[in-house]
């Protein structure tokens, strides 16, 4: 449940009050931008997508009935919009994870330089299929509950949980493979 202030803001926004709409944008725009950036890895695209997400949110806000929290509803729109974008986006050379991975042949994860390991992990996340990447981002970064993620992605909690575990195991294998363990 939202706090009282947020409920009032949402009701005012549903009536088209500009101050309420502005307040909701200010409250969530950084969070949504960061989430989208973690999905796309590109600042310009994240900026455009965030803008489009909020336009969509306030165009549809009259249909928000409070069955889920506003944040979950907002993430649902943001996730679906970003996934649609990612499936349409042509692969770019600079985005290919292997192109940007540092050369490294360490014997264990522990021996890899911190910065290198971070790059490996980051790129391994980008290698995941879009839907798994969304689940990892929502669960590992945003620490959302499976029930929320299931609602956002429109799947069952069980599917969500197993997809997340599979993604994390895949992530570990990918990092290990790239670091020649």
């Amino acid at each position: 449940m939202e706090d009282n202030g947020e409920v009032q803001l949402i009701e005012a926004a549903q009536k088209g009050e500009r101050e309420a709409i502005g307040a909701l944008i200010e409250r969530y725009q950084r969070e949504v931008f960061t989430f989208i950036y973690k999905m796309t890895g590109n600042i310009e695209e994240s900026k455009d997508l965030t803008q489009e997400v909020f336009i969509k949110v306030f165009t549809k806000i009259s249909g928000f009935n409070g069955q889920s929290t506003f944040r979950t509803w907002l993430y649902k729109i943001a996730t679906n919009h970003t996934l649609n974008f990612l499936t349409r986006r042509p692969p770019r050379a600079s985005d290919h994870p292997l192109d940007r991975l540092p050369d490294a042949t360490p014997s264990s994860l522990e021996k890899i330089e911190k910065a290198d390991l971070r790059a490996f992990v980051r790129q391994a996340v980008e290698c995941l299929p879009e839907r798994q990447r969304a689940i990892v981002t929502l669960r590992a970064f945003e620490e959302m509950r499976y029930a929320e993620i299931a609602e956002i992605l429109g799947c069952s909690i069980g599917n969500c949980k197993s997809a997340y575990h599979n993604a994390m195991i895949k992530l570990r294998e990918k990092v290990k493979h790239e670091t020649s363990l």
Binding site: R18, I21, G22, I25, E26, Q29, R30, F33, T34, Y37, K38, I43, S46, K47, T50, Q51, F54, I55, F58, L109, E110, K114, L117, R118, V121, R122, V125, A140, F141, M168, L171, R172, V175
Partner: peptide
């Protein structure tokens, strides 16, 4: 544990406030 540490410590962009001002105005 190592992977999660790096996942959560991944550098995030810190865009200037002007970006969010522009974004808000565009949406409004």
């Amino acid at each position: 544990a190592l992977i999660f540490n790096e996942l959560k410590a991944s550098p995030l962009p810190y865009p200037p406030d002007a970006l969010f001002e522009d974004l808000k105005h565009a949406v409004m």
